[in-house]
Design a protein around this nucleic acid. Sequence first.
DNA 1: TTTATACTTTATAATCATTATACTTTGACA
DNA 2: TGTCAAAGTATAATGATTATAAAGTATAAA
Lengths: 157, 157
Amino acid sequence: MEHRIDRIKKQLHSKSYKLTPQREATLRVLLEREEDHLSAEDVFLLVKDKAPEIGLATVYRTLELLSELKIVDKINFGDGVSRYDLRQEGVEHFHHHLVCMECGSVEEIIEDLLEDVEKIVETDWGFKVKDHRLTFHGICRQCQKEALDNEEDSSED
Amino acid sequence: MEHRIDRIKKQLHSKSYKLTPQREATLRVLLEREEDHLSAEDVFLLVKDKAPEIGLATVYRTLELLSELKIVDKINFGDGVSRYDLRQEGVEHFHHHLVCMECGSVEEIIEDLLEDVEKIVETDWGFKVKDHRLTFHGICRQCQKEALDNEEDSSED
DNA sequence: TTTATACTTTATAATCATTATACTTTGACA
DNA sequence: TGTCAAAGTATAATGATTATAAAGTATAAA
């Protein structure tokens, strides 16, 4: 983890930003909860454990900064809150999400499934793609299973 | 246009909703500005011209209703406002968008580019896809052209 | 034509995420 | 040590959306 923080520190310095204790605390939270999709509020509460004197606005500013530098991705699943997601190292594109309409869980897909689609867009529409956001809405494996189980139950009475 | 309104009226009735004058006025605005991506506020202001007595909350509720019935799509480009987009008739899936990072223009792609990708998601992740949202961020044809022109200008001095 | 019932709409207030403001603190460097 | 700019804090303000309460409206039975 120290390694990644160091790397990010360098990224900040290269744009003449500093890695202040507050920013570091925020980063550590994001690193520790990498698999989650935390809202600004979530991040704030978790950072508060490490650095209780931090303000909400600072967390917002830090997340905004990290987002500008493409260290995190700011995503929006349409539930009214922005969520912040650490970008995989070395992966230059936005990853995809599977949002379950039943339980609200979010899975990630790291691999790029869109290379072919991007080619089509670039040639057919003359649009130079820089980034993409792809979200599937549907039913996750777990919820499909549960739906099936319930069906079996109800057919037994 | 009357034809489409009639069709939508039937869709509403089939779920026992009524096409009230307010709902009709809202729909007409959406039909007239089909190529735009209007926010609730935009729709409100435009509907006010037709039916000045309408309230903002009614517009929100109408858009929410139309969205539930899949007559419009509620989209979010991350600018803090939801936008509402009439769904093409007979097209059962969400369409895609090309958002220009330079001029902010939004182009639409109606064709489904994701059939293959969805198959992969369903088989590899066991995720039953119901809908998808795909947005590309990049530079539109027009802005690419302008950038090129400027480059030529500056190389002339 | 009344009356009952269930929807709709309106206006306004409330909510909630996010941002702006007005200080205060910190830390590098002269 | 003193100065200055970047960062941070607390709090207020903003702006999109939603909830609420009161009033209106259509429909169908009496």
